[in-house]
Amino acid sequence: MENQQEEYQQRRDRRPEALGDLRLLPDELLCAIIDRLAPGDVGRLACVSSVMYILCNEEPLWMNLCLRFAGPLEYKNSWKKTTLYRQSLSTAVSETHEKPLTFDGFNSLYLYRRWYRRFTTLDAFFMDKGDLERKQDISLEEFCANYDGQKPVLLTDLANTWPARHSWTIDQLVKKYGETAFRISQKSSKKISMKFKDYVSYMSHQHDEDPLYVFDDKWSEEMEVIFI
C-alpha cells in the first residue's frame, strides 16, 4: 500500500500541491520573493514542502543572502554553507554532511536555465583549434614574405623568459599574499573582503553565473613589491 502510494507520488506533478495557492505565481516570482527573506525565514520555508525545499536551496539565492552581510568572507564550497558559517547559524558546517533531498515530479524551466548558465562549459568557444600555424622566432623578412596579408600565424614562446611567468603563478601569489584581504566586487552595497587564499579556493570551487572578483584599491602603492 505504502509502495503504491509512493509510486503515485513520484509520477504526478508535485508543484500544485506543494505550493498551494502559491502555484499561481511563476517560479521567477517565487524566487524573487524568497530572495528578500532572511536566512532564518528561508530555512523554515525549506521545511514547509518539497517544492519549497527546492526553491530554498538554490545556490544563487544563498549567494544573494550571503552578500547582504558586510565583513570578511571565507567560501565554504557552497553559498548556503558559507552563509550559515558567516552568520554563525550552523556551528559544525564542515562536519555536517547534509545530504540534499531530491524530489521527482518537479520541473522548472527557470531554474534549469539558471543552472545551465552556471554549469555550461565555455570550452567550445576556444578560438585556437590547433589548426593555426605556430611560429617561434620569426624574422621580419619571413613574416612579410609568407604571412603578412596572406594567412594568420601564432607567434609563440615570446614570454618564456619573463620573470612573471614564474613569480605570478597562483601558487606563488598565494604564498606571498595569501593573508592579504581584498575587497570583493558585485551585487552588494556592503563592504565585503576576502583573503587572497580564500579567493583562490573560491575560484576553483565556484559555479556562479556572475562570479565575484577581487579588487585592490591600494594596488599602485603595492605595485613595487609585486614587481620585485
Partner: peptide, 21 residues
Amino acid sequence: ADAVMNMTVEEVREYFGLVND
C-alpha cells in the same frame, strides 16, 4: 516577502493552503 517573514512552518502551510508532502 513581508507577509511570509517570521511565519512558522505551519502558518505558511495554512496561509497558502500548501500540502505538506
